[in-house]
Amino acid sequence: MSNDRLGQLAGAGVSIWLDDLSRERLSSGSLQELITDKHVVGVTTNPTIFASALSKGEAYDAQIRELAGRGASVEDAVREITVSDVQQACDVFSGTWETTNGVDGRVSLEVDPGLARDTEATVAQALDLWKAVDRPNLLVKIPATEQGLPAITRAIAEGVSVNVTLIFSVERYRAVMDAYLDGLDQAAANGHPLAGIASVASFFVSRVDTEIDKRLEAIGSDEALSLRGKAAVANSRLAYAAFQEVFTSERWKALEAKGARPQRPLWASTGVKNPDYPDTLYITELVVADTVNTMPEKSLLAFADHGEVHGDRVTGTAAEAQQVFDALERVGVDLPDVFRVLEDEGVDKFEKSWTELGDTVTGQLQQAR
């Protein structure tokens, strides 16, 4: 039986994606069950998810032995393992991809986060992953660093579908949308059919509250403390207002006439980190059509159990959201610094997870040999 609460969420126009993937989840049928019973229509991955998957169980043992037997390098082994998982997931979601006309049924695979500040290397790896996975429902994840922006444009220009990750500020989000539109212009000039190119923009949510709440508590005034837990939702609502503005513009209409698809906002990092907040906060408060919410399984099951859909919670809220940001600045929160710190931390965390993934594979290859 499909879950009614998640069904209501999907019915409100929110695409439910799972923020997790592993060989065990694929082979056990767990992923297919989530598709069938929990309205899951896509998957996102990141280096942390793969590092966790590789360190548990025996699902990768046979592939590790095969890789060790032919003397594969750690870099090649990591690539083959992650590509294999993503290919299998793309195949599981192929039916969803077809029935939604390519809107959903998407699986994301990230470029090496160590390349986040290197445009040329990011483009090269994005094209390589696109060819290696060889599935039309793949999204290649590229971080929204300053160096990532031109990489996004160039990947889109080559017909690669992209999940832009690690977006924290509305200012950077606007630059991401511009990069996407620039890429579509170039793709059309290069002869790529625009209908075959998809993109989402992953706007990170909970980490914004974590960082800003910490600063509000350090300030300590009553006004500052009253703003805790409000910044992340306000930030996301301002982002959606920017999305509506850009994707109703004359420039967009010209691209849409050529078959282009809008770059949907994706609410990422929606697991609630502060136990004082409702565990479905970043799902309930960000319900709006034409968005994706990618959830860790814990958040997905929490919403299935007790989540509530109160209709569109985002459209028309920009003025109220801006008041939250005005108040944050008034009490002394340095917002540009917040977003710089969050981006640097985000890249650093993924780099460390990538290193951890490499270390795990190194140990497993050595043991197999």
Score class of each variant (00 low, 15 high):
residue 3 N to G: 08
residue 82 T to R: 03
residue 234 A to E: 07
residue 230 K to F: 07
residue 99 T to I: 11
residue 297 E to W: 14
residue 305 D to G: 03
residue 234 A to F: 13
residue 20 D to E: 02
residue 26 L to Q: 06
residue 106 R to M: 04
residue 172 R to F: 06
residue 200 V to N: 00
residue 42 G to Y: 12
residue 315 T to N: 07
residue 298 K to P: 03
residue 149 L to K: 14
residue 46 N to M: 05
residue 365 L to R: 09
residue 280 T to N: 06
residue 58 E to A: 02
residue 309 V to C: 02
residue 33 E to D: 12
residue 204 F to K: 11
residue 238 L to D: 14
residue 301 L to T: 12
residue 360 T to Y: 14
residue 286 L to V: 05
residue 365 L to W: 13
residue 123 V to N: 12
residue 195 A to M: 01
residue 285 E to Q: 03
residue 293 N to H: 00
residue 120 E to S: 08
residue 364 Q to R: 15
residue 222 D to F: 15
residue 13 G to R: 09
residue 289 A to C: 00
residue 231 A to H: 13
residue 255 L to F: 10
residue 22 S to I: 03
residue 60 Y to A: 02
residue 80 E to W: 10
residue 37 D to L: 11
residue 245 E to T: 15
residue 137 N to Q: 08
residue 316 G to H: 00
residue 228 R to A: 09
residue 247 F to C: 01
residue 201 A to E: 04
residue 118 D to K: 00
residue 291 T to W: 02
residue 127 L to G: 10
residue 197 I to S: 05
residue 62 A to Y: 01
residue 255 L to H: 11
residue 210 T to Q: 09
residue 343 E to T: 14
residue 227 L to I: 10
residue 100 T to G: 01
residue 85 D to N: 05
residue 126 A to D: 04
residue 200 V to W: 00
residue 84 S to E: 00
residue 318 A to C: 08
residue 201 A to F: 07
residue 60 Y to K: 01
residue 249 S to V: 15
